[in-house]
Design a protein around this nucleic acid. Structure first.
Lengths: 344, 344
DNA sequence: TTGTACGCGTTATCAT
DNA sequence: ATGATAACGCGTACAA
């Protein structure tokens, strides 16, 4: 049953049937009633989305391209919250959400992509050439990194990290701070960062900005940031974090850090769990700070001291920009220091 | 730049260009090279997905229709894990994932839907009529509930709940068990379930099956299940669960249950957090069991005693069935009892 | 209200 | 074998 069949059946033109569905004002109410009634009776389900999107050039589909795999992104609290914000706005506006990952085979990514009306790109992409393959006219908003020629949504990573590290270092004198990084080395590294490791360039990744904030706070407190031991973790999941955190916690007492500046809540929560297992008192023996402000860190005792970034707002804003509900220029969102009980 | 333009530019037919992209065996390698080379040079990005999907009838898009809102589903660990499993398989098979919610306006849901090649329906839908509007030929797999004429994927809710409740009641004598339900009343209810409340019919919802399992275990242990107090929560989030759990925990000592049979880990974790805040010792003062086996319940101390359902496997299986990688008949997945420290 | 060109490829059929 | 032709998929938009 197609629109054309229905038109023939009713003895009206296809245009009229189309109008009955899309533009009520273009035909008499009586005729419209009749068309809709017959449509239902004959089992015609309304204009086909594929045909319509070919004709109009729009699909009402917005694609989110995630830097990480879908499997990871969907299980991570921060990106889930982001997606949830995106979905909320799209839903309201009658659009739908197509999930893509930059990790997918390029060809299939690109042609699924050409169905979408717009793109929200979340996180640092493995390469920029991807963007050359996207439809030229489609709009694009980058989140947490920049794409030349397109607006982006960021949070103020450096100041936030300065603020929280400054807080951590002020509360009580900590002799042995250490930093736990997320995906910050040029080559993959799960473990201690040595001078041989090259760090990703500042403009490429948000974690580098977080590191700068930590460094600035350390310097302010008279510490030589170069001397502060640093670890790195490649993936923000318990399973990947745990071995690295264990390596830290299992250092001899005299060497074990008494303050961990973690770049994510997942890192900090992993440290918290493993530290508790080892009988370390928090915050007395070990002080912890995180970043993100995920629910899991707050609905527990002790609550994590962390920086709350509103990932949901980030998603909502990006979605609104894509849909043209918001001016298309780059935005910087604020964060908030949450004082929990893991650092005081 | 369309395929037609490129064909004209090269002086070959559109069919040949199409073949160069889709069926290398249909033309000489030399010609194919030339076409692909020129395509790149002239900025032709390959066949347009919209046009192709109109012609072929396929889009390589699989839609997941979620019973809950996208906002909720993306933030919930269980459904995220499910989606993650779906995405993993689709990815591998060159398909993409479109997220829809049964809560969306019907019309937009239906027409976004008509783009998809297949549907995975997750959770109890508000109404069945939705399925009448879906494309007739499209394949459909239901998860956690049944849709007439289509295969489904289930877990064994009743036996699992019997098993864990039986365990809980065996470990030590508990005088005052109580049940915390999830969305089980006919009319919304966040609080104590009274005889006036009508419960959803067993065939409609998995939580009713869970309740049966609990009841069977209670009877086995000589308890009158009718007498066991029951609460109900409408949404599986901390914010909605908390007030109900507080109502339970704040009962006078003599009335407060010493065993909570919770239908989800979120419920149990909420109870755990709030109980700890009140200085209740777990499991001595209060014994807790959950359902789901989400990571959050295991990466902590005490770990939750719960039933682990492999939501990821559920998603993978549903996706494989939709893609025809798996026979299209209903399947029942096994669960596993996880002995944590919240009930012994 | 209607006729109809158009959007962009795909594929069956035909020709060389 | 290779390549070309043309019908087809389903609506939409604009002129009439």
């Amino acid at each position: 049953m197609t629109l054309k069949d229905l038109a023939r059946e009713l003895g009206v033109s296809t245009a009229t049937v189309s109008n009955a569905f899309n533009r009520p004002d273009q035909l008499s109410p009586a005729l419209r009633e009749r068309i809709l009634g017959e449509a239902k009776r004959l089992g015609y389900r309304g204009p086909d989305a594929k045909a319509r999107s070919l004709r109009t050039g729009r699909s009402r589909i917005i694609a989110v391209i995630l830097a990480e795999s879908l499997t990871y992104s969907l299980n991570d609290a921060v990106s889930s919250e982001f997606l949830s914000g995106v979905a909320e706005v799209l839903d309201t506006q009658g659009h739908t959400l197509l999930l893509l990952s930059a990790r997918q085979a390029k060809c299939q990514l690109v042609d699924s992509a050409s169905m979408a009306d717009g793109f929200i790109v979340y996180g640092l992409m493995p390469s920029d050439e991807l963007f050359d393959s996207l439809p030229l006219n489609a709009s694009l908003v980058a989140v947490d990194f920049n794409v030349a020629g397109h607006p982006s949504v960021h949070i103020d990573n450096e100041p936030s990290c300065f603020e929280i590290a400054d807080h951590a270092l002020s509360v009580k004198s900590r002799k042995r701070p250490a930093i736990v990084n997320l995906r910050l080395t040029e080559t993959p590294c799960n473990g201690r960062v040595t001078p041989e490791h090259i760090l990703l360039p500042p403009e490429r990744t948000i974690t580098r900005a977080r590191l700068s904030g930590f460094y600035r706070a350390l310097e302010k407190h008279g510490l030589d940031s170069e001397q502060v031991p640093m670890w790195n973790v490649e993936e923000n999941t318990f399973d990947v974090c745990a071995p690295v955190i264990e390596e830290i916690l299992d250092l001899p007492d005299a060497e074990r850090p008494d303050l961990l500046l973690c770049m994510s809540d997942r890192l900090a929560l992993t440290a918290l769990t493993l530290a508790e297992q080892r009988g370390l008192r928090i915050p007395d023996d070990l002080c912890l700070i995180g970043f993100d402000g995920i629910a899991e860190g707050q609905y527990r005792a002790p609550r994590l001291t962390t920086i709350r970034q509103e990932s949901g707002d980030k998603g909502r804003l990006a979605a609104r920009m894509i849909l043209g509900l918001e001016p298309r220029h780059s935005r910087l969102l604020k964060t908030e220091l949450i004082l929990g009980e893991t650092c005081h």
